[in-house]
Computed example of a mutant assay.
Amino acid sequence: MKFKMLDTLIDQKAQLQSGFDAMAERERQAKENYHAKKAEYESTITESVLSGADVTKDLDKLAKEIEEAKTAYERRVHERNIYSAARPAEKISSDDVVNAWNNEYVPEFNKKKRDPALNKLISVKRAYAEALLEYKGIIREFDNEKYVVANELGDSYRYQLKDVSFNFTREREKFTLGAHDLRSLESGKVPDYWNHHEELNGVGK
């Protein structure tokens, strides 16, 4: 389930950055033009000194252009600072995102995803506990009956009577959940040995 406001925030950041980049580029061009005019002024005055030519008009014209370029550059700097402070493309704040996450997304996620999963877990937990207790009761019933038969036959026959409880660890692992199973499942993994049991193979896939 996607948190849609995140896309809005990402798009907003992109718009803000695009606007800032445009402002920065205008500032860079204005600064470049300003320094170019100053360099042209210095070059012109140097040539006039070396050549003896009268370039007063040119210098006056360049001085005016320098002042205009400087004003334009300072304006661009001011515009960028205003844009950075005002952030006109910013329609949602980080606080808005947190509020939407906590008060809109999380409740909806719980209702649609988490709560159904928890209900399934509690149902399965109850069913497992009841099945295990039923099995334990059946084994007690069997053991009681076996005890009566063994006492009647005598010790020489006691160990010849078959049992029905789990005989091997692998059999117990197949039908019950142990600490290792729970640790693996809590970490989001299915115990490897489950693949050895046809009834459990493929769980989680």
Rank of each mutant, 00 (worst) to 15 (best):
K4N: 06
M5E: 01
D7P: 00
L9F: 09
K13Y: 11
Q15P: 10
G19M: 10
G19Y: 10
M23W: 05
A24P: 00
A24M: 05
E25N: 15
R28K: 15
R28F: 06
Y34M: 10
Y34V: 02
A36V: 01
K37E: 02
T44W: 04
I45V: 14
E47G: 05
E47I: 06
V55A: 15
Y73E: 08
R75S: 02
R76K: 15
R76E: 15
H78E: 13
N81E: 15
S84Q: 12
E90M: 15
I92W: 01
S94E: 02
D96L: 06
V97P: 12
V97C: 07
V98Q: 03
N103M: 03
V106M: 15
V106I: 15
P107N: 13
E108Y: 01
P116N: 11
P116I: 13
L121S: 05
I122V: 12
V124H: 06
A127M: 08
A131C: 05
L133V: 15
Y135F: 10
F142H: 14
K146C: 07
L153Q: 08
S156L: 10
Y157P: 04
Y159R: 10
L161H: 05
L161P: 02
V164W: 04
T169I: 13
E171S: 12
R172L: 10
K174S: 03
F175D: 00
G178V: 03
G178A: 04
E186R: 12
S187G: 05
K189A: 07
N195V: 01
E198I: 09
E198T: 07
L200K: 11
L200R: 15
N201D: 15
G204I: 00
